[in-house]
């Protein structure tokens, strides 16, 4: 997704209010953007607190700053700067965290971002965008220049199945029909499930929804209607349960009077075996891999 991110932003490079600051990351990824932006691309060094504070000053002056780093370095280390300098002032800075969830895999736990949007959504005025597919960035990035407050953009690995075209970027998208239940996946997880479940007979697979924007408001009417029919929901997200999208969805279900729906919430659970591996490894350990998710529907009656 980084390449699509770089390509998409490079198309915006001529905006004279656009400044891009990196926390010394972007090797073999952002060179094209750097070249296109000239002096408005700044390497602010390994100093994330300052990176956020400077971006607030730039935004206060009327510029449109984007700041970039590996996700945990950008939401955890300078959390107070995000809280005070960006959110209290509702400044339109785009905070770009690369490698959401277990994206940095065997690089280790310090590089994982499994509580990022939960933490950030506690802050007033913060919006989170979690694109699922590379092509999402084409339409999403220009939209973010119109944001009226801070945005956290969680980048991951886009997994688009062959021979299908995802709907245009939206907070909620229905990707696949199915009658075995309803599956809501947050961000890039949706692509993998789509790829791995689409070949099943519709009667054997769940319908698949992709959620990309947080916080959520009321659930889409089509989703509510569907849940009244299927009465079985699995929510999957590469994020811990606390502060999760799943909890917000369940609140909205209660507000919608959706009773009698069985809800299975599959989340990041840290490092249950105490060992480390690829993103695929960690997803499997958490039951977030496609086979485990499919099992939630086929074995649902036994749970």
């Amino acid at each position: 997704m980084r390449r699509a991110f770089c390509d998409g932003l490079t198309q915006q490079a001529q905006r004279n209010d656009f400044v891009f600051l990196t926390g010394d990351l972007g090797y073999a990824a952002l060179e094209t953007l750097r070249e296109a932006m000239g002096s408005r691309f700044l390497n602010a060094g390994v100093a994330e607190q300052n990176l956020v504070g400077v971006s607030a000053g730039l935004a206060k002056a009327g510029l449109r700053p984007w700041i970039y780093s590996i996700a945990p370095f950008l939401y955890a280390r300078p959390f107070e700067q995000i809280r005070n300098d960006l959110c209290l002032h509702r400044l339109p800075v785009v905070v770009v965290g690369n490698g959401g969830g277990y994206g940095y895999g065997v690089m280790g736990a310090t590089h994982h971002a499994i509580e990022d949007y939960g933490v950030l959504l506690t802050l007033s005025g913060m919006t989170v965008q979690i694109p699922a597919f590379d092509r999402d960035l084409e339409s999403l990035l220009p939209q973010l220049f119109e944001a009226t407050g801070p945005v956290y953009l969680r980048l991951g690995l886009g997994e688009q199945p062959d021979n299908v075209q995802p709907p245009d970027y939206q907070p909620w998208r229905k990707l696949m029909a199915g009658s075995a239940g309803t599956l809501i996946a947050v961000g890039p997880l949706a692509g993998g499930y789509w790829r791995d479940l689409v070949a099943l007979d519709p009667s054997q697979r769940p319908s698949l929804w992709c959620l990309s924007t947080l916080p959520i408001g009321a659930l889409p009417e089509e989703l509510v209607a569907e849940l009244r029919q299927t009465r079985k929901l699995v929510i999957a997200e590469e994020h811990v349960a606390q502060g999760s999208a799943g909890h917000s969805i369940m609140v909205q279900m209660l507000r919608s009077g959706l009773g009698g729906v069985s809800v299975d919430h599959v989340t990041a659970v840290g490092y249950p075996s105490g060992t480390y591996g690829s993103q695929r490894f960690h997803r499997k350990e958490c039951g977030l891999d496609s086979a485990s998710i499919r099992g939630r529907f086929t074995e649902g009656e036994q749970r």
């Binding site: 300052n50 504070g53 400077v54 971006s55 000053g57 730039l58 206060k60 510029l63 300098d85």
Partner: peptide
């Protein structure tokens, strides 16, 4: 100081 630096840089 970071906030001021951002204003100055702008």
């Amino acid at each position: 100081l970071s906030l001021a630096a951002g204003l100055a840089l702008s």
